[in-house]
Simulated scan of single mutants.
Amino acid sequence: MKILHTSDWHVGKVLKGRSRAEEHKAVLAGVIEVARREAPDLIIIAGDLYDTAAPTPEATRLVTRALTALRRTGADVVAIGGNHDNGAALDALRPWAEAAGITLRGSVREDPNEHVIDGTTNGGEQWRLAALPFLSQRYAVRAVEMYELTAAEANQTYADHLGRIVARLTESFAEPDRVHLVTAHLTVVGATTGGGERDAHTVLGYAVPATVFPGTAHYVALGHLHRAQRVDGGCPIRYSGSPLAVDFGEQENVPSVTVVEVTATTAAQVREVPIPAAASLRTVRGTLAQLAEVEVPDAWLRVFVREQPRAGLREEVQELLPRALEIRIDPELVPAPGSGTRVAQRAGRSPRELFGDYLDDRGHADDDVRGLFDELFEEVEH
């Protein structure tokens, strides 16, 4: 059978105040085109369909239309909720999804059979998919209790909980003559973050070892980390990555989807298919003269300016590079706080004097900045 694995669409993402709706339309159109060309038997979306738990109507429309279009390619479609998604809201769409022939699992249900999905390809290959949406630490404990595993797990680690849940969902994977698959939205120890994930859900006890997945699985389709990569383990484990870079920390990623070919008796053959539709993200550095020579017309830019701070500098950079979304003084030119020779004494000093000391300490010698502070302070006072 052939599988198309994608994840982390983050539809509704706003980058430094700039909507990326048109880019998302182009990116999802690219994913749909790959599905039409590759003709997979199964399409897995491994979480984070949305960027926020309260998506706009436009974002909801885009996601539901994309899922419908993917289903119309003839493939079975399974999507799970990620940490950015509202699991309950996704589950509320299940009647629509089922009518459209789409399997949607937003959050963990009491019946574990809800998360074990069976299918048969047009060629007669049988498959079984264990689908595990994102679980917070609190709900991991609750899920373990619902599945009536062991009674002493309240004080176990997140990885222990996830291991027991995955074991429960995959306990039938020893049966022969069937392709066994897992999809989940989580962090596996040893994997590399893409730069734009939510830190609280990738560290601080949220990482699990690859050993939670059974060696009898033919392929594990993961979401959550935005860089496409293979993870070492007892079975083929892979992140498809995000099909677009969601922020500047991901500018080196190659947006793609993953295509997998596998049978019950042969190993998974995996390849990445690039999705180049979104604008690239680039970081540029230099003086104004150097920035004037930069030519990246289709990229969103993060700019580190190698000039001393002064009033109006941002506007000058913006005029040179209209697609600059983030403009900062190059960190190498900014003295560390407190590195100045003079320490400001607060007692008996005016706000203007204290602000002046701050500017001196940070190497800001522009009198226009002091003048702007005076104007703002006067407005606040009066």
Rank of each mutant, 00 (worst) to 15 (best):
I3C: 11
L4N: 06
S7Q: 01
V11G: 08
K13L: 13
K16A: 11
L28A: 04
A35T: 05
G47R: 04
G47L: 00
G47T: 00
D51Q: 02
A53E: 01
P57F: 03
E58Y: 01
E58V: 03
A59M: 01
L62A: 03
A66C: 12
G81I: 03
N83G: 08
D85L: 01
N86M: 08
R94G: 07
A97Q: 07
E98F: 07
I102K: 08
T103Y: 04
R105Y: 05
E114A: 09
T120W: 10
T121G: 00
G124C: 09
R128M: 14
R128V: 14
R128S: 15
V141C: 07
N155P: 13
T157M: 14
V166G: 15
A167D: 15
T170I: 04
D177N: 13
G195M: 08
E197P: 09
F213V: 00
A217S: 14
H226E: 13
R238P: 00
F248H: 12
N253Y: 00
N253V: 07
V259G: 08
E261F: 06
T265V: 15
P274L: 01
A311F: 14
P322D: 01
E326H: 09
I327M: 06
E332G: 11
T341F: 06
V343E: 15
R346V: 02
S350N: 03
R352T: 13
E353W: 07
F355D: 09
Y358R: 15
D360N: 15
R362E: 13
D366K: 06
V369Y: 14
R370N: 09
E379Y: 04
H382M: 01
